[in-house]
Design a protein around this nucleic acid. Structure first.
Lengths: 256, 256
DNA sequence: CGTCTGGTTGAACGTTATCAACTTTCGTGG
DNA sequence: CCACGAAAGTTGATAACGTTCAACCAGACG
C-alpha cells in the first residue's frame, strides 16, 4: 500500500480564522476568550490578564506537571497538544484526556492540592499559567468570571461521564468513531477542518485512551478504510463520511 | 445453599456515631457539615441554612430529576441512596454513580443548565434542595464556602477519572473488588461498618455501573465467596479480607 | 546501509457476553 | 399464613470480541 494518498491535509497549524484575528480574540490566554461572552468590563479583562501573565513553553515530550506535584497553577493550552494520564499499578498508562488550544489543565488538582495525573506535551506547546489563588481573589469581585469557571468544571465532569459511557458500553468500532467525531468537532469549533485531521498522538496513545490495544486500534482503522469512511496516511486522517461516523458512534453497525 | 449465614450484618441504618450527634453535626443538610471545617462563622452558617432550606422526600424508585430537566437546584443526599444514569442509544442504562448520604447530586448540570442524567432513589430517601442561584450569591461573601464547593467539583472530576481507569483497564474481578473497597471506605467514613455492607442496588445495577453483565457480576461474587473473601446473602455482604480485596483491586491475581 | 521505532497483519487464546435453563426471593392476594 | 407469580439471581454451554504473541513492513535517523 505504498500508493500516494490523494488528499492534501492541512496540518492544523493554519486556522481557517486568520491567525492575527485569533490572537486578538484570545488575548494572552484562552481563558480570557472564554470570558468574553460573559460580560466582563475592559477593566476586568485587564485584571484577568494580570493573573494569566506568565506564558510557558513546553517542548515535545516534556511534562507540564506530574502526579502528586503540589498544585498552584491551572494551565490554559495556548498552542499545541497535551495528554493527561495516570500510570496504573502494572505500569500501563491510562490516558484521561487529550487537550488542545483553549482547554484547561489541572482542574482535578483543586480538591487535594496535588495533581492527580501527569500532563505531557504531545508536540512543542505553550501554556498560560493561571495562579489559582489569585484567580480565586478575582471571583469575589467578578461573579461572571466565577460562573464561567464553574461551567468549565461542570463541563469537565460531563466530558468524563461521556467517556465512562464509552468505556463501559461501546465496542472498539464505536469507541474509535466517537473519538474521531469528538476530535472533529473540537477542531471545527476552533476554525480548523473537521474532516481533515492530523493526529497528534500515536496508535498506542489512542488505545490507552479508549481502553483498547494498539493492535485493535490498527484493525479498526483498517476496517474503517475498507468501509470507505476514512483515508489514512500515518497520522493524517481524512474523514470521508462524518454523518456515518456519527451513526457508528451512536451504535450503528459497520457495514463494509 | 439454604444454610443460614452466620454473621448478623448491621443494616447500615444505625451509625456507629450516635444519630443525634450526627444530626447536630450536620444541621439541616450535609453541605453544612462539609463547610464546618473551613471556618464559617455562626452567622454564615445561618445564611447557608437559608439557601438549603427545603427538604424533600423521594420514595424508592422515584426520579429526583431526569436528563434534560432544566437545572435550578443541586441536591444533597440526607438519607438513603441514589443512582445517576444515562440511557444509551440502544436502551441500556449506564450508571455513572451511586450516591449516599452527604453526597451532592447535579454538579454536571451547571455547564449547560440542563441535567445530564437521571437520578433515581434506590430506597426511600431524603434530599436537601440547594438553590444554585442563591448559593452563588453567598460565594461572593463567603470565600471559604466557595473553596469548599470548588473542592467538591474537583473531587467529582477525580472520582470520574478513577472510574475511567477502572472501565478502561481492569478485569471483572478487579472492578468488583474496587467497587467494594470504594463502598467500604465510604461507609466507614460515615461511621458505619466498612466490612458488613448492605447493598442498596441489584446485581444488574452493579453491572451497569462497572461495565459488566449481570451474569459476570454473579460469577465474580461466586469466585470471591469460594476464595474466602466474601460472605454473601442476597444483598448482605460481609467482606472477610479487606486487605486482600484492596490487593485485588490494585491488580493482584485471585487465587482460590 | 543498518537499526530503531511505530504501525500493520495473522493466528491462537482468553475473558466476558450471550443465550438458556433453573433456583431463590419477594410481594401480593387469597 | 400460605400459595402463586413475578422479579432477581445463579449456573452452564457456547460464541464473540478483543488480547496476546509473533512476524513483518515502512519510514526516520544516524
Amino acid at each position: 500500500m505504498g500508493e500516494q494518498i490523494s488528499f492534501k491535509s492541512n496540518d492544523n497549524t493554519k486556522a481557517l480564522l486568520d491567525l492575527e484575528e485569533l490572537k486578538a480574540r484570545c488575548g494572552k490566554c484562552n481563558l480570557r476568550e472564554l470570558c468574553l461572552p460573559v460580560g466582563l468590563t475592559q477593566n476586568d479583562m485587564e485584571r484577568l490578564d494580570q493573573v494569566i501573565r506568565k506564558r510557558q513553553r513546553v517542548e515535545k515530550g516534556a511534562l507540564l506537571y506530574r502526579q502528586y506535584d503540589s498544585f498552584t497553577c491551572l494551565y490554559a493550552v495556548r498552542l499545541g497538544h497535551f495528554k493527561t494520564y495516570q500510570v496504573t499499578h502494572d505500569g500501563a498508562q491510562h490516558i484521561t484526556g487529550f487537550q488542545m488550544a483553549g482547554e484547561i489543565l489541572g482542574l482535578d488538582a483543586i480538591n487535594s492540592g496535588k495533581h492527580q495525573c501527569d500532563a505531557k506535551a504531545l508536540e512543542d506547546s505553550e501554556v498560560c499559567e493561571i495562579h489559582f489563588a489569585e484567580l480565586q481573589k478575582l471571583f469575589a469581585e467578578m461573579p461572571a468570571l466565577l460562573r464561567q469557571f464553574q461551567r468549565l468544571m461542570s463541563q469537565e465532569i460531563t466530558r468524563d461521564q461521556s467517556i465512562m459511557l464509552l468505556l463501559g458500553n461501546m465496542t472498539a468500532d464505536q469507541r474509535f468513531a466517537a473519538f474521531l467525531v469528538n476530535l472533529s468537532s473540537r477542531y471545527a469549533a476552533r476554525g480548523y477542518s473537521g474532516t481533515s485531521i492530523q493526529l497528534r498522538m500515536g496508535r498506542e496513545e489512542i488505545g490507552d485512551y479508549l481502553g483498547l490495544t494498539i493492535e485493535s486500534i490498527s484493525r479498526v482503522i483498517t476496517r474503517f478504510k475498507k468501509a470507505g469512511l476514512l483515508e489514512v496516511a500515518n497520522r493524517e486522517l481524512l474523514i470521508l463520511d462524518l454523518p456515518r461516523m456519527r451513526n457508528l458512534a451512536a451504535g450503528a453497525q459497520l457495514v463494509a
